[in-house]
């Protein structure tokens, strides 16, 4: 019996190998395709490794205090990330507060209210907002939006709330120049709208029409259909879309650099200038060297960690998103 199995296995190995289709060219093609996929992986790890390597001296010098310190003194070589981290989070949060209702409104309009003929052009206009380069948003924010914002919002609101507790600090502009954290938040909100709105629209479109029809059939109003039928059905994807928008808002650079005012100051007022991690890197990187350069790299490292956590959560919630 043992001999028999041995014999069989021997014949197996001895049998002429099945001819593989294609020759060397086929193997090479396969290898190239495989290598390209690996390269995409390597780039992502390369980004993390290079930024961590560049920022390491700053982390080593300041320890965990780097994150909690709000110093940024080039003369005395004292650096801390706190102001930039708070600025990043605050502007992104404001962007969500303004951008999410806008996006949801647009998605509801496009899927429920828009007349058929206008749907495509309106959709396209909103999506084109995503193609406008971020530097153009920066110019628009600084030269068009900021003067209007200073004149019609900052000045009247400051005058109104001056002296009031809490709102008096939160909405008081010492120098109503139009730039500041809130301006950055508004520009970021406009920039995330096309992404959040188009994903939400696609998700609402995927909900079976029967559900909607039956809700209308029992006499629901549009509001009730949206609130009780559509939103619960698409909620996970909508949250994913919002996280994706948050990821964009956290890392956005040029537009924010134009309108945030670039001050290393912690202020309780949303009208005051501040800075984000990305805007600080963009502003100082070219003139920096030594520990300042390392500290900017360390800021980049913190930004990497924050955005990638947000993006990973977003991608887990929204499985796949269209590119265009």
């Amino acid at each position: 019996m043992g001999a028999l199995t041995e014999q069989i296995s021997l014949t197996r190995t001895a049998a002429p190998a099945r001819r593989k289709p294609g020759g060397l060219g086929d193997q090479l093609f396969r290898a190239a395709s495989y290598a390209s996929a690996i390269l995409v992986l390597l780039v992502l790890f390369g980004i993390l490794a290079s930024i961590a390597y560049g920022g390491w001296p700053a982390f080593a010098e300041f320890g965990p205090g780097f994150i909690t310190s709000s110093a940024w003194n080039i003369g005395q070589e004292q650096y801390g990330a706190f102001v930039a981290i708070i600025g990043t989070l605050a502007s992104a949060l404001l962007a969500l507060l303004i951008g999410v209702p806008l996006s949801l409104g647009i998605a509801v309009y496009l899927t429920q209210l828009c007349p058929g003929w206008a749907r495509k052009p309106v959709s396209m206009t909103i999506e084109l907002l995503a193609s406008v380069p971020s530097i153009i948003y920066g110019m628009w924010g600084l030269f068009i939006f900021a003067p209007l914002f200073a004149r019609f919002v900052q000045v009247p609101v400051s005058n109104l709330v001056e002296g009031m507790p809490i709102v008096g600090t939160l909405f008081y502009a010492r120098v109503p120049s139009g730039v500041g954290i809130l301006t950055a938040g508004i520009i970021l909100a406009i920039m995330i709208v096309p992404f959040v709105a188009s994903i939400t629209r696609d998700m609402l479109d995927q909900i079976p029409t029967v559900l909607r029809e039956s809700a209308y059939g029992i006499g629901c109003t549009t509001w009730e259909v949206v609130r009780h039928v559509l939103v619960p059905q698409a909620s996970v994807s909508i949250i994913g879309a919002i996280m994706l928008g948050l990821g964009r808002a956290l890392g956005e650079t040029m537009a924010v650099t134009f309108v945030i005012g670039n001050a290393n100051r912690l202020s309780a007022s949303v009208f005051d200038p501040g800075s984000t991690i990305a805007s600080r890197i963009a502003n100082e990187f070219n003139e920096a060297d030594g520990l300042q350069l390392n500290s900017l790299m360390a800021l980049g490292c913190i930004l990497f960690v924050i955005t990638f956590v947000v993006l990973i959560v977003a991608r887990l919630l929204v499985r796949r998103v269209k590119v265009a």
């Binding site: 996929a37 690996i38 390369g46 990821g247 980049g300 930004l303 955005t307 991608r315």
Partner: peptide
């Protein structure tokens, strides 16, 4: 493929300034 697809989607929305820092170091 699942891993590459996932990370590629993340790279798609990664902040471009970080890519600048990467190439600067590289």
């Amino acid at each position: 493929a699942d891993l590459v697809r996932f990370l590629n989607d993340i790279l798609l929305s990664a902040p471009s300034i970080l890519i600048g820092l990467f190439v600067y170091t590289l």
